[in-house]
Amino acid sequence: MKLETYISTYCHIRNNKILINGKPFIKDAFDTDFSIFSKKVYKDLNLSYPKFFKMDNLSKLAFLAAECVLNREKTNEDDNIAIVLTNRASSLDTDRKHQSSIQDKESYYPSPAIFVYTLPNIAIGEISIKHQLKSENAFFILDAFNAEFLHNYACSLLENNKAESVLCGWVDYDNEKYDCFMYKVSQIGDIKHTINKLQNLYKIKD
């Protein structure tokens, strides 16, 4: 059975800018590091979620993108939203921090709060906790954004009734370099969910 599937909302976060459905969400982009930028976005989204500040950069990036996508549409935990995320750097940015703390012979104090983020799928956990999403979730490490892979995975989940919608994305963060493209696929929406369309949307520039 082939289902007609659609993209209802999509979001880009890159170069200290956020685009929602291709339009700038924060007008005044400015030159700063990710921690300050992400804090500004947190405030602009009117979030009150202190746990945000305990997250590592990868989780912050994924979390903010998920907020942008999911808050556009009134969602609740009964909606059965699956999550499939991909990236290239895995959790390398935080792995490095943990690694340097255990290599330091003079000052050996590995931090549990850092170690818990040394897995990329913790970012999925953070989104799941915030939105109470208990559906299927998976994280894949790929060389680059792969529209075909995500398209097939999302379609398979929807066709097999594993989920009513799927939050998909590419969320890559390493050493202040980041790139995030997240979108929601279901049977409702204005944009046809095709491999070609995904490739084009991913490349959108502001």
Partner: peptide, 22 residues
């Protein structure tokens, strides 16, 4: 096969085993 998210904590499992049950 089945997979679900416990949606409880970064590392700890929930007291009611919700994710495992699902």
């Amino acid at each position: 096969y089945g997979n679900a998210n416990d949606a409880f904590h970064q590392t700890a499992s929930s007291g009611d085993g919700e994710g495992a049950t699902l």
